[in-house]
């Protein structure tokens, strides 16, 4: 695990890391992943990945209008807003 890879992953994660942080994360991830490599030894030929520990069945409900947040409630925690809109940088 090198700093270039860490920088690429940080870009993927949309996570700004300072120079000191990059060093620390590189070191931590290298040591942790080196230990976790051991699972490669386990034979998993033909084994389905497990994504949930119990069976989850799709449930349906009647198509009814239920209570939802009011615009005021939805915007109450917005760091920046204008009228009933969240304010963000220009996206186009």
């Amino acid at each position: 695990m090198d700093q270039k890879t860490i920088q690429k992953v940080a870009t993927l994660a949309r996570l700004e890391l300072g120079g000191v942080e990059i060093d620390a994360v590189t070191q931590k991830l290298s040591s942790v992943l080196a230990h976790f490599e051991s699972i490669a030894k386990v034979n998993t030929e033909g084994v389905l990945p497990m994504v949930t520990p119990i069976e989850v069945l799709a449930r349906y409900r009647d198509d009814q209008i239920l209570n939802s947040l009011t615009p005021e409630q939805g915007l109450a925690n917005a760091p920046s807003k204008q009228g009933f809109l969240f304010k963000v940088p220009p996206v186009i």
Binding site: I39, A40, V42, T44, V47, L48, P49, M50, V51, P53
Partner: peptide, 11 residues
């Protein structure tokens, strides 16, 4: 994926 497969074996 590998961890999720070993997870099933652990179960």
């Amino acid at each position: 994926k590998k961890a999720s497969q070993v997870r099933r074996l652990l179960q």
